[in-house]
Design a protein around this nucleic acid. Sequence first.
DNA 1: AGTGCTAGTCTCTTTTTGAGACCAAAGATC
DNA 2: GATCTTTGGTCTCAAAAAGAGACTAGCACT
Lengths: 136, 136
Amino acid sequence: MKTGAARVPTFAGEECDMSTWDAGKCPVRDVMDQIAGKWSTLLLQALADKPYRFGELRRLVPDISQRMLTQTLRDLQRDGYIDRKVFPTKPPSVEYSMTPLGLSLFEPLKRVLDWAEANHASVKAARVKFDESELA
Amino acid sequence: MKTGAARVPTFAGEECDMSTWDAGKCPVRDVMDQIAGKWSTLLLQALADKPYRFGELRRLVPDISQRMLTQTLRDLQRDGYIDRKVFPTKPPSVEYSMTPLGLSLFEPLKRVLDWAEANHASVKAARVKFDESELA
DNA sequence: AGTGCTAGTCTCTTTTTGAGACCAAAGATC
DNA sequence: GATCTTTGGTCTCAAAAAGAGACTAGCACT
C-alpha cells in the first residue's frame, strides 16, 4: 500500500480523503486554521459578550502584543466573524463587534470552552502524571 | 480607569477577571492553548475514528513534519487526550488512541468542526469580499 | 550485502511571534 | 503656548517556533 487513499469519516459523517488534506482543499482545515490561533478564541470570547474597542481589548488581554491584536482582529474580520466600525472622533476610535456568522460559530465553540473549564482539573492531573513518569 | 478589573462572563456563565488571563491562571486558556494548535484538532479527529500508528498518521496528514507530529502527539498525550502503546514487534510499532478524556473533549469539538464544514462557503465568501474592499 | 521498514531525534533554515519605538491629530494640562 | 496624553495602528529588530531533510538502530526480506 503506497499511501493509498486513506479515508477517514469527516465530522459531518461524510468521508474525506485525508491525503488531500492540504489546507485549501479540506473545508475543515481551511476554517479551523484560523480559529485555532492562539488569540482567536480569546478575542471571539470577549466580543461574544459585547463590542469592544481596540484599546479595551488590549487591556482585556494583557499579554497580547499590539501587533498580534491588530493582525488577529483583521484575520477574524476577513473571515467574516467580526465587524470593524471606525468612529471619526477626535482621535478616531474603532469598535469591533461580532457578526451573525461569528455568533453562530461561537455557539459550538462555547461548548468546547465550557468543556475546557469543566475538565481543567483532569487535564492538569494528566500533566502531573505524565511529567512524573517522564522524570524516571 | 486604569486597567480596572475588566470582567467578562466566562463560558460557564461565571465571571472571570480577564486582566488575570495569564495562560496559567485562566483554566480556559490553559486548556485551549494546547487544543488550538495547528495540528492538534487534526490528529484528534483522526484518532477519534480509530487508533493509528505513527507512520499512518504521517501519511494521513501529508503536510505535517515528523518533528511536529512527534511533538503534537506527545503534547496531546501529556494532557491526557491520547494514549501511546508501544508494541515490541520486529521494528517496534507505536499505536496512538483516544482516551476517555480525549473522547469527551472531541464531543464538543466535533460540533465546531461540523460548523466549519457547514459554513465553509460563508467564510470563503467573506474573504473574497474583504479582499476586494482592501484592493481599493 | 544491500534495501527497506519502524519511530523517532538532530541540525539548519525559514517563518511566526513578541517587544518596543514611532506616527499624526486633537484635548487636556500647566 | 508648550507639553503630555490618548487614539489605533505600523515599522523594525530580536526571539521563539515550525518546516526540511539527514541520520539512527535493529530486524526482515531478497
